[in-house]
């Protein structure tokens, strides 16, 4: 798109929305949010960047192919379910650890890993669709 204002603002807007999507992903365990909606916000960020600077720039910026990102997400989600085999509890049982980092207790869980997997699947799949559509639209 030609607008100078849009092209200047787009990188800031994209990084802000990316940060916000991760915030939404992480708060999703107990409050509204989660991997799906977080992923959608991230895809909107990428779409805005794509409209401003072209699809090729976005593809370079995310480095991995969108489908590979989706595959990694699916893999992470499956692994999150499989970890519980070690704890001798059924598939997909939530397991928590509370490591302490610089005196702050950080709760980590398989649930979070699963949600991150969902986030990546959504980012990968939807951005794959969005980027191909934008490519066609530009012709």
């Amino acid at each position: 798109m030609k607008s100078v204002i849009f092209r200047t603002v787009a990188p800031f807007l994209t990084s802000l929305m990316m940060l916000f999507s991760i915030f939404v992903l992480l708060r999703g365990h107990n409050e509204p949010g989660g991997g799906f909606i977080g992923g959608l916000i991230a895809v909107s960020a990428l779409a805005i960047y794509g409209i401003a600077h072209g699809v090729e720039t976005v593809r370079r910026a995310i480095y991995f192919h969108p489908m590979a990102i989706a595959g990694a997400g699916l893999f992470a989600a499956t692994v999150a379910g499989l970890i519980s085999i070690i704890a001798r509890v059924p598939f997909m049982t939530g397991l928590w650890i509370y490591p302490s980092l610089f005196g702050v207790e950080i709760p980590l869980s398989t649930v979070m890993l699963f949600d991150t997997g969902v986030y990546l699947v959504v980012v990968g799949a939807i951005s794959s669709v969005a980027l191909s559509l934008e490519e066609r639209g530009g012709e």
């Binding site: 192919h65 489908m67 590979a68 989706a70 595959g71 990694a72 997400g73 699916l74 893999f75 989600a77 499956t78 692994v79 379910g81 499989l82 598939f91």
Partner: peptide
């Protein structure tokens, strides 16, 4: 779970 894990691995190794 096995099919999903292998399938996801294949999607990741798309090249």
């Amino acid at each position: 779970a096995w099919c999903f894990a292998v399938g996801a691995l294949l999607v990741m190794l798309r090249r």
